[in-house]
């Protein structure tokens, strides 16, 4: 197992390197190059642009630029004042040492910008996930145990509908109902806020935080509830008809013990694996949810940076996203082996 994980990690590093080359090439082959977004807000004269290119090292061949992006330039002489002579050591550390450069837009270090956003996304998405799982698992179990009952048919229909609703539309509809149409009967204000993490200018209150969470979480969670409840149902149905459950019943165990102790444990294995695989996609959903509900997280940051072609930020989030996916794939495999003793990696 240890060897297997090690091999997978090594493979992941290879894939990451490959992806970093692709991402970097995309950005640099884009028309106008990485500076396209840099001078967007104001007119930059030609000589100023040339100076800037030299200072940022954009006059070098792309492979050299890639190596500098990867490994920094504090080990080589560069042209910092842009006069055409490489006179001093560079200051960049490269992404391998955690230096993602500076945002074109705010001139802040990319990592600092991301640090400010990341917790907000984690806060929103972890809540979304927990709610989705907590609702989906019981629904799936009951649906499987009472197969073909009215409840089951309702759940199956709901899960088809839930998976077909695009979350950006769902968010708009929820806003329409709970922000525009329904009013709080006591204050006459909108029932739920239209966006943000908390009401600006008010003291911290749990109630206020929760009110701000409801719509984004509902928007993000519905599709996942639909998907997991369906998966839980079929996973439970697979287990329910197995011999060992008949044995458990024959021993005289109560039905609830049979279901919740014997069946559920095995039915959860594929769900845990799937869950690990899905984590990156759940986070990707943040782009729509955060944009709709003005939630200052990574998704919104990526969206805004794409609009303004703030490439250092885009590159950083892309790399982080790829790392996330690789880790979650590995995690899924490990879970699988740990939870199901029949599976051994070699």
């Amino acid at each position: 197992m240890g060897q297997y994980i090690l091999r997978r990690l090594l493979q992941s590093i290879g894939i990451l390197l490959l992806l970093s080359i692709i991402f970097f090439a995309l950005v640099n082959l884009a028309p106008g190059g990485p500076l396209a977004g840099y001078g967007q807000s104001r007119h930059v004269p030609a000589e100023k642009a040339a100076l800037l290119r030299r200072q940022l090292g954009l006059d070098k061949p792309i492979p050299v630029q890639y190596i500098i992006w990867l490994a920094g330039n504090n080990w080589m002489k560069v042209d910092l004042n842009g006069d055409g002579v490489a006179e001093s050591y560079g200051t960049r550390l490269g992404i391998l040492r955690g230096d993602f450069g500076f945002s074109f837009r705010t001139r802040e270090p990319v990592l600092k910008v991301i640090e400010g956003r990341f917790p907000n996304t984690v806060y929103l998405m972890v809540t979304t996930l927990l709610i989705a799982i907590l609702i989906a698992i019981p629904i799936g179990i009951i649906s499987a145990v009472k197969q073909y009952s009215v409840f089951d048919i309702a759940v199956t229909t709901f899960s088809f509908a839930g998976q077909a609703i695009p979350d950006f539309w769902l968010g708009l509809i929820l806003l329409l109902i709970f922000y525009a149409w329904l009013k709080n009967p006591f204050t006459g204000e909108a029932l739920l806020p239209s966006g943000g993490i908390y009401s600006l200018g008010s003291a911290f209150s749990i109630g206020d935080r929760i009110r701000h969470l409801i719509l984004p979480v509902a928007t993000g969670a519905l599709g996942w509830i639909a998907w997991y409840s369906r998966f839980m149902r079929s996973s439970m149905l697979d287990v329910i008809h197995q011999d060992y459950l008949r044995t458990a019943r024959a021993k005289g165990l109560s039905e609830s013990k049979v279901i919740y102790k014997h069946a559920l444990r095995n039915a959860l294995i594929p769900l845990v694996t799937l869950f690990a695989l899905d984590i990156p996609y759940i986070f990707a959903g943040a782009v729509f949810v955060e944009m709709l509900f003005s939630w200052p997280g990574m998704g919104q940051l990526y969206y805004q940076s794409a609009l303004q072609r703030d490439y250092p930020i885009l590159l950083a989030i892309l790399i982080i996203g790829a790392v996330f996916i690789l880790l979650s794939n590995l995690l899924a495999d490990i879970f699988y082996a740990v939870l199901d003793p029949r599976i051994r990696y070699s």
Binding site: Q11, I15, L16, L18, L19, F23, L26, V27, A30, P31, G32, A36, P280, A284, V287, Y302, Y303, A306, L307, R309, L314, I317, L318, G321, A322, F324, I325, L326, N329
Partner: peptide, 26 residues
């Protein structure tokens, strides 16, 4: 298959946004 693995590792929505934001200008 390594190429397939790498492609599966792409954060696809993010890459789609990047590609289309670039191609929008071309």
């Amino acid at each position: 298959m390594r190429i397939t693995d790498a492609a599966l590792t792409l954060p696809s929505l993010l890459v789609l946004i990047l590609l289309s934001s670039i191609l929008r200008e071309v």
